[in-house]
């Protein structure tokens, strides 16, 4: 197992270490839940020790006291400016689950570039509409509103929270209705898609990935391409499962910092790390030679 896989597993288990919650069908209620975890991890997961930043943001927007959450936005900006989408690639439990599903042996599907270039914007729309605008604009006379993303889209909540809690709680099972069927449908679609396509939820639907992606071009942790070493062979682009061309855009908003391009580069031209160097250090712009 490579280093990233170990970190993903360790982080997923560490942030969901409340084992007795799974056994009792109850969630953790301790003080750690004042804080958010950086990745998408439902706080109604019986094992969750921290709060989900997307759920927490909607909770603050939907409360009577605030319209926008400075606490959560500040936390996400801090994590974003330090790491960008490194968090997606290394610290997100739901991203890890999708990667495990993608290991199921079968013929994999490469999303056509034109489809990919359109669908990738969907996650920004979901962030804007479901996470920010709807919870703010649809507040009732008491200032309360619905967490629209969690309620109608989030498959992580269904998988990590819904299924284990319903298995252990008869009263909750008795309350199942259309909404649960809807959310199970979305979860099954995401699971099925993840078997064939690499991280489909992260690429097209995740509002947290969309937020962090805004920081990828400027974050402290970044990739750099040594233009003197790069031969533009295109092997990095072939290795990239997010369909980026790393030697042209090493700090692309879609890059989850998985490091496959670094491993694939025969010239060792791509480097990573925390740096104060310019984000536009790569000067290579020509298309790759045919391989």
């Amino acid at each position: 197992m490579d280093k990233r896989k170990r970190v993903q597993a360790l982080f997923a288990f560490t942030t969901n270490a409340h084992v007795q919650g799974f056994l009792q069908g109850k969630i953790y209620k301790g003080r750690l839940k004042n804080m958010c975890v950086p990745g998408l991890n439902c706080y109604s997961c019986p094992g969750a020790l921290g709060a989900c930043p997307i759920g927490a943001m909607q909770a603050a927007e939907g409360s009577t006291r605030y319209d926008i959450s400075m606490y959560i936005l500040g936390f996400l900006m801090f994590a974003g400016i330090l790491f960008g989408r490194f968090i997606c690639g290394w610290l997100c439990p739901f991203g890890w689950i999708q990667e495990l599903l993608h290991k199921i042996p079968c013929r994999k599907v490469k999303v056509p570039p034109r489809v990919n270039s359109v669908l990738k914007w969907l996650k920004y729309g979901i962030l804007l509409v479901f996470v920010i605008l709807l919870p703010i604009l649809t507040a009732d006379e008491f200032g309360l509103s619905t967490p629209y993303f969690c309620k109608y889209i989030c498959p992580a909540g269904t998988l990590e929270g819904g299924i284990p809690l319903l298995l252990m709680n008869r009263p909750l099972r008795n309350a199942i209705g259309f909404l649960f069927s809807w959310k199970m449908g979305i979860l099954l679609l995401v699971i099925l898609a993840a078997v064939f396509v690499f991280r489909p939820f992260c690429r097209y639907l995740c509002p947290l990935g969309a937020f962090y992606s805004l920081f990828n071009p400027v974050s402290f942790y970044r990739y750099r391409v040594d233009a003197d070493k790069c031969t533009k062979c295109g092997k990095c682009a072939k290795a990239c499962k997010m369909d980026i061309t790393p030697y042209q855009t090493p700090n692309s908003m879609e890059c989850i910092r998985c490091g496959e391009c670094i491993k694939a580069c025969p010239a060792k031209a791509i480097r990573n790390g925390v740096s104060s160097a310019s984000p536009h250090e790569s000067t290579v712009t020509e298309p790759p030679k045919p391989v």
Partner: peptide
């Protein structure tokens, strides 16, 4: 955010089962 009590709001939400999140 902490001074405004937002951490408390997050805590209150996170320590109760979010019925919307789990599809109920």
């Amino acid at each position: 955010g902490i001074r405004n009590g937002e951490a408390r709001t997050v805590f209150e939400k996170a320590v109760n089962i979010c019925l919307e999140c789990i599809g109920i």
